[in-house]
């Protein structure tokens, strides 16, 4: 699971072009969206949908419903595990 989380962080940095950040800058449980944490927004949620599809083969049809899944690295990892 922790391996998955580290991998996710690298993929987030790659997918969102956050090359100034390192995986260590992203905490497992801090919110990815909003003004705290990484300050991501709805456009980045679209990138996460692409990320889940291209790296994990998981398709999300409704971008709005995915907000909870994308709350943090923890919640994304839980979701990916549950789909395995």
């Amino acid at each position: 699971m922790s391996e998955l989380k580290e991998q996710l962080k690298s993929q987030i940095i790659e997918q969102l072009n956050l090359e100034d950040l390192t995986p260590a800058d992203i905490k497992n449980d801090s919110p990815l969206f909003g003004d705290e944490g990484l300050g991501l927004d709805s456009i980045d949620a679209l990138e996460f949908i692409v990320l889940l599809d291209s790296f994990y083969g998981i398709k999300i049809e409704d971008p709005a419903a995915a907000r909870e899944i994308f709350h943090s690295v923890d919640s994304m990892a839980d979701f990916i595990e549950s789909k395995k």
Binding site: L18, D20, L21, D35, G37, L38, G39, L40
Partner: peptide, 17 residues
Amino acid sequence: LKKYFSELEIDYPKFYK
């Protein structure tokens, strides 16, 4: 740019995007 940003100690995570 990252160097100047960290030296200025600005709390603005959106900068990275």
